[in-house]
């Protein structure tokens, strides 16, 4: 594999690691916030929906990156 190809592979691996860390951090922070603290019901569902959207997109990104 060329140097450029190796660098590209490494970059992809790095992005996957970072995306997974992003997912983790998101789950950690919102998990703690939503589980421990009280919110109005409508605000709660809005936040959950927003986080769910971010997580779904990130998971899709990871899946695509793993296919490269």
């Amino acid at each position: 594999m060329s140097t450029k190809g190796a660098a590209k592979n490494r970059a992809i691996k790095e992005v996957i690691v970072l995306e997974e860390l992003f997912l983790d951090t998101l789950s950690f922070k919102f998990g703690a916030t939503m589980n421990l603290y009280t919110f109005e019901a409508n605000k709660r569902s809005e936040i959950i929906s927003f986080v769910d959207q971010l997580k779904t997109i990130t998971k899709e990104n990871i899946k695509l990156l793993n296919q490269l």
Binding site: S27, G31, N35, L36
Partner: peptide
């Protein structure tokens, strides 16, 4: 210290309340 896995782990959630 905050536990991040309290969504999916029942013990972690209750333990976090003690921690809090």
């Amino acid at each position: 210290q905050f536990y991040g896995n309290l969504n999916e782990i029942a013990v972690s959630r209750a333990a976090q309340m003690q921690q809090s």
